[in-house]
Design a protein around this nucleic acid. Structure first.
Length: 498
RNA sequence: GGUCGGUUGGCCGAGCGGUUAGGCAGAGGUCUGCAAAACCUCGUACAGCGGUUCGAAUCCGCUACCGACCUCCA
């Protein structure tokens, strides 16, 4: 088995991956807060973790992948100054039940994940379904002296945490003294919190607040951060392998999660922290307020001033995989057009690969060795912190070999039967199962079109045999106008949508 | 202001001290009735200035610019 290396945000280095339990991996990824439509950036993050999940399984690990849905507790504004829960706020504005808001956007989210061909996680728990677990965790933090109650709300006590030799800021590189400094300044206000670096575990609900649950401290609702600690602990235990999320969650969300877990359970939750980087649009942060944003829907239809045309979900997925998950990725019209062509080439070569025949059964040729080492390289690249762009580069080198064999620029006599068999298994399964790429074109029409095209190609072949170039070219030109491209090869004619 | 990350050829994007990334676009060629597709070859890029080193896109320092987080955000 290839040794896996992952970049750990905690140590800021690439580390050899060692699972806690041989052959098994527990992975928790912070899911969306369902108070609005999915952000395209969300799609990139979860696509990255989807490939990670798929590759870990491909390597033979038994993975338990938990990705939550946050449907309560994520606040708008500051908890001290009349904070409002995001879901609650949206419910009030739209005059809906909070659960209607949650349901609507959770559905939309899952639909979109489906469209991008993401595997569903093994467990997709919701914060509102784990109020009791969260209350228990708060109690545990209070019992251990890591939290304090103020007027029915409960806060995490960061100075206490620090005073017991725990490193608050370990993940995000925050400087403790600074946080303390800020705290002193903040004491001048009438804030409920003792220090500005403290954060809410339980928030007492205003009478008008829509989402509320009874607790030992007040009728209220849990704070953001807590749901992830509670749910990861419930489903993966107090100590598991991988915790992931977008890099913007490092602080405060993940930092606070660590503090909560250490405080309540006595140990940091995860061995490896993986963070995905941001998606940019035309070199800048996506931002609605600055008119620099695009929704997945707009990207698919091309209904956006930023794009000249629409791009299919698989093209977008392929585009995302062409960059490493830890790098920012710049979404531009030009780059997507380029990605679309590359993606189509990859889909086309899958068909060519099926038609290849190998003749050699003797010694392995140089070509065989080249192909084998490229295949091994693909896995090596993935095992090195899930380097999809590097793996794709090798896949494209294999693409050239396959096409050359198909077009007789390379001699099939040089290809060993075993090599071909391996290639025909590996190549499609890696693209489909690990990268999660599939042919977009709708299956329904495909059979019909396939039959028609067979007929047309037959007719054109006859015309060409009679040197009736007029008819042959008319067929070709008309098809071209319909975005169907004919490819005349040594073994006859094939076609593809252009 | 603080913390962290980035600046690679026309565009996107790997790269982690010495070896071709790759995709798209462009040029030339092979093949072809012509064309397309496919294949082959090519451009000689690493923000700037110093330093370390036999050797730096890769390490260190400074400068410039960009971005993320610090407040809701993947």
């Amino acid at each position: 088995m290839h040794q896996l290396f992952v970049y750990n945000s905690l140590s800021r280095t690439r580390e050899e991956f060692q699972p806690i339990h041989e052959g098994k991996i527990g992975m928790y990824v912070c899911g969306p807060t369902v108070y609005s439509d999915v952000h395209l950036g969300n799609c990139r993050t979860f696509t990255s973790f989807d490939v990670i999940y798929r590759f870990l399984k491909y390597m033979g690990y038994k993975v338990r992948y938990v990705r939550n849905i946050t449907d309560v507790g994520h606040l708008v504004g500051d908890a001290d100054t009349g904070a409002e829960d995001k879901i609650s706020r949206k419910a009030r504005l739209d005059q809906l039940e909070p659960m209607e808001v949650v349901q609507r956007y959770a559905n939309g989210f899952q639909e979109m994940m489906n469209i991008f061909n993401l595997l569903p996680p093994d467990i997709e728990p919701r914060a509102t379904g784990h109020i009791i677990e969260q209350i228990e965790m708060i109690q545990s933090l209070l019992d251990r002296g890591y939290a304090y109650e103020k007027n029915g709300s409960v806060y995490f006590d960061t100075p206490k945490y620090i005073s017991r030799d725990h490193e608050y800021g370990i993940l995000s590189g925050r400087v403790v003294e600074e946080l303390m400094q800020e705290s002193r300044d903040d004491l001048k206000g009438q804030a409920e919190k003792n220090h500005s670096s403290d954060f809410a575990l339980w928030i007492k609900a205003e009478p008008t607040h829509l989402m509320r649950w009874p607790s030992p401290w007040s009728v209220g609702f849990p704070g953001w951060h807590l749901e992830c600690s509670a749910m990861s602990t419930k489903y993966l235990g107090t100590h598991f392998d991988i915790h992931g999320g977008g890099t913007d969650l490092k602080f405060p969300h993940h930092e606070n999660e660590i503090a909560q877990n250490v405080g309540a359970c006595g140990e940091a939750p995860a061995n490896y922290w993986l963070h995905t980087n941001m998606l940019l649009l035309n070199g800048r942060k996506m931002s609605k307020s600055e008119d620099n944003s695009v929704t997945p829907q707009q990207l698919f239809t091309g209904d956006s001033k930023h794009f000249s045309k629409g791009f299919s979900p698989m093209v977008v997925r392929f585009f995302m995989l062409q960059a490493h998950y830890r790098s920012t990725l710049d979404l531009t019209d030009e780059a997507l057009i380029a990605a679309e062509k590359g993606y189509k080439r990859l889909m086309e070569v899958l068909k060519t690969l099926e038609t290849l025949q190998a003749e050699n059964t003797g010694d392995l040729s140089d070509l065989d060795q080249e192909i084998v080492s490229l295949m091994d390289g693909v896995i090596d690249d993935m095992a090195d912190d899930f380097n999809t762009p590097k793996a794709l580069a090798k896949l494209f080198e294999l693409t050239s070999k396959i096409n050359a064999l198909g077009g007789r620029q390379l001699d099939p006599k040089d290809l060993h039967k075993d090599t071909l068999m391996r290639l025909q298994t590996f190549f499609p399964s890696f693209i489909g199962e690990v990268l999660g790429l599939k042919d977009d074109s709708s299956d329904q029409d495909q059979q019909l079109v396939g039959g028609l095209m067979e007929l047309i190609i037959e007719l054109r072949k006859n015309a060409r045999e009679h040197k009736d170039w007029g008819t042959a070219d008319k067929i070709r030109d008309t098809l071209t106008a319909l975005s169907i491209q004919l490819k005349d090869g040594k073994d006859g004619t094939s076609w593809a949508k252009s």
